[in-house]
């Protein structure tokens, strides 16, 4: 039996080794070597000069995460209280944009936000002044929220629907008003969902490059763009790109570690991870 199950996992083990572990080691190797292949700390140290890019990425990622949480939580909560059929419809609607190609979705926002885009044309038509929206940090955050909010809603929804109805009734029975039930029972019990939602929005938002490229213009360079430039762009320097990736990975690991500290405090509540 045991050898059988080992055999079954062999393809993925091989896949993982070749396409995940090996590339990671390569990234590590590139980060600590120069073009000639000899060991150097220069790449890692020069990441420091891009600290503004790192800070901007983390800041915009954090803002997008908070906005997603603020918008997603009420929605997930309301959906979780609907009857089963409506719940299915709502979950479908949340997932629907994800079926459309990511690039196309973001490109659509470009045409909406442009100075001569749809929104500004409509504003002009009703006699309102045009608003400059494209190529701002706000546009980047909007793009992030729009693209990643389903990853916030779904884990929240799955945790909220799993909360035992009788636990809520018990709280009411013990004298909790609906506000107190929400704050003292629903919110703490949904923390695993919050944690996984935050992780699933924050991580891709921090490392995105398409969104900032399309909606942020040149002035809102993010880590993703930086890495993109080192490998595919004009400033071809895979060693520096690897170093930036490595630092980003460490930062994300630290963030997740901090988040999981919160999660440990909550004993149970049902798994929040949807994937």
């Amino acid at each position: 039996m045991k050898s059988d199950s080992k055999l079954l996992s062999a393809p993925y083990t091989v896949w993982m080794t070749v396409f995940i572990v090996l590339p990671m080691l390569l990234v590590g190797y590139f980060a600590f070597t120069d073009r000639s292949g000899s060991f150097t700390m220069e790449n890692i140290l020069s990441v420091g000069q891009y600290s503004n890019v790192f800070l901007r990425s983390i800041w915009l990622g954090a803002v997008a995460t908070v906005v997603s949480l603020g918008l997603g939580y009420p929605l997930a909560y309301i959906v979780s209280k609907m009857n089963a059929r409506r719940q299915n419809v709502m979950v479908m609607l949340v997932m629907l944009p994800m079926w459309m190609n990511f690039l196309l979705r973001t490109y659509a926002w470009m045409t909406l936000l442009e100075d001569n885009g749809l929104i500004n044309s409509m504003l002009a038509a009703v006699g309102l002044p045009r608003v400059h929206m494209i190529n701002t940090a706000g546009a980047v955050v909007l793009g992030m929220v729009y693209n990643y909010i389903p990853y916030m809603i779904l884990p929240l929804y799955s945790v909220l629907t799993k909360i035992d109805r009788s636990v809520i009734e018990a709280a009411q029975d013990l004298g909790a008003s609906s506000r107190e039930v929400f704050l003292k029972v629903v919110v703490p019990l949904s923390m695993p969902g919050v944690i996984s939602g935050v992780t699933m929005v924050f991580v891709p938002a921090v490392s995105t490059f398409i969104i900032s490229k399309m909606l942020g213009g040149g002035g809102n360079l993010l880590i993703g763009d930086l890495i993109d430039m080192q490998f595919l762009g004009s400033a071809y320097n895979p060693n520096l790109g690897s170093a930036v990736s490595l630092v980003l990975m460490v930062i994300i690991l630290i963030c997740m570690g901090i988040m999981n500290q919160f999660d440990d405090g909550e004993a149970a509540g049902g798994g929040g991870m949807l994937i």
Binding site: D164, S166, V167, E169, A170, A171, Q172, D173, L174, G175, A176, S177, E180, V185, P188, L189, M191, E266, A267, A268, G269
Partner: peptide, 20 residues
Amino acid sequence: LPPHRREVNTIFQKYALFPH
């Protein structure tokens, strides 16, 4: 009167303790 304002308390079939 909503449940939280009644002077009665319930013991539920599945206990309904707060897991957190």
